[in-house]
């Protein structure tokens, strides 16, 4: 338990953490060297992966310094001008910052509340289907939208929701008496974005939970039945716990890119009339940065989002451990 605690007090500095961690390990009966020797094959297994992370993730990491530069590709990192925190100050001082933060934050929260549980619920319900062939067909159907590009989805959304003859609006006007400007009304923007993302990704999201559910023990079900547990209780007490660790890990990882909203989706769904709620960090970076080739600025915003992510991941991980879960570390 002691070592667990130490592990959970993570710092951004991994080296420090490892040293501290190693220190506590020495206390155990065998020495460091013995443990290294004992696990030598495990370390060997680690090598390809570590090589990958060093070469493809950490070697390019020097690119982050351009957040503090006025970077120009031709001049390169050594030739570009250093500007210190100017890009960050620009970002935070931008009169729109709080509106962007608000929009991004609200979308991120809605995403956690509505989109994150959707694949879990869907997987649980799928799991309850008794007809095997039927289940397979439904599974295959719901995973298809994942493969469609946002450009096409946006186009289809327009076809369905437009006030000029869209099917949805025709139904709405039958029931409600008048049409609703789903595509332009700011209050409909967020529901629309959530609806799209749930439609596109929740079926795909079930894949991982179905894999986890595959490990649920038949006998446990039988035991539950003997205990007289109904369907709902079995789902709650047997099925759900089986995927709990997966849920926790996915949740923590999701928090890591909490502020990432689907750029393409939002960009395509935003228009002159709903931009007040559709402007988020990602579209902002696009408008002020990437279209103009301003790498420094977008890197700075990315760094900011990363730091927010670190805080959230570490916080969530700690919380998960406090609640008796494994966390990800």
């Amino acid at each position: 338990m002691d070592s667990l605690k130490v592990q959970s007090v993570d710092t951004v500095n991994p080296g420090y953490n490892a040293a501290k961690n190693a220190n506590t390990e020495i206390k155990s009966e065998i020495t460091k060297f013995q443990r290294l020797k004992r696990d030598k094959w495990l370390y060997l297994l680690l090598i390809p992966g570590l090589a990958y992370f060093i070469i493809f993730k950490y070697l390019p990491m020097w690119g982050i310094v351009i957040a503090f530069q006025d970077y120009s590709p031709f001049l390169g990192i050594f030739g570009s001008k250093w500007v210190g925190f100017e890009n960050f100050i620009d970002f935070f001082k931008n009169p729109d910052f709080f509106r962007l933060l608000e929009n991004t934050f609200i979308l991120a929260c809605l995403d956690l509340i509505f989109f994150f549980p959707a694949p879990i619920i869907l997987a649980l319900l799928l799991n309850e289907l008794r007809l095997q062939a039927y289940k397979s067909v439904v599974q295959t159907f719901i995973y298809v939208p994942h493969f469609m590009s946002w450009v096409i989805i946006a186009s289809i959304t327009y076809i369905f929701f437009t006030t000029s003859g869209g099917v949805v609006n025709e139904i709405v006007s039958l029931i409600y008496g008048k049409e609703i400007n789903f595509l332009s009304a700011p209050e409909w923007f967020r529901p629309l974005i959530m609806g799209q993302i749930i439609w596109k990704e929740s079926g795909w999201g079930t894949v991982i939970f179905l894999a986890a559910l595959a490990s649920v023990d038949k006998e446990q079900y039988e035991a539950a039945i003997v205990d007289g547990a109904g369907r709902m209780r079995r789902m709650w007490h047997v099925t759900l716990p089986a995927v709990r660790s997966t849920i926790v890990v996915l949740l923590i990882l999701r928090l890591g890119n909490f502020l990432d909203t689907g750029f393409q989706q939002i960009f395509l769904m935003s228009n002159s009339l709903n931009r007040s709620v559709a402007d988020v960090f990602d579209t902002y970076v696009y408008f002020v940065g990437i279209t103009q080739g301003a790498y420094s600025y977008s890197t700075a915003v990315g760094l900011f989002k990363g730091i927010v992510g670190v805080v959230l991941v570490l916080g969530a991980n700690k919380l998960a451990k406090k609640m008796g879960q494994d966390g990800i570390f």
């Binding site: 186009s155 327009y158 076809i159 437009t162 595509l183 332009s184 228009n271």
Partner: peptide, 10 residues
């Protein structure tokens, strides 16, 4: 009437 949201591809 829906020009503000009309998909340019359409």
């Amino acid at each position: 009437e829906d020009f503000a949201v009309m998909d340019p591809q359409k």
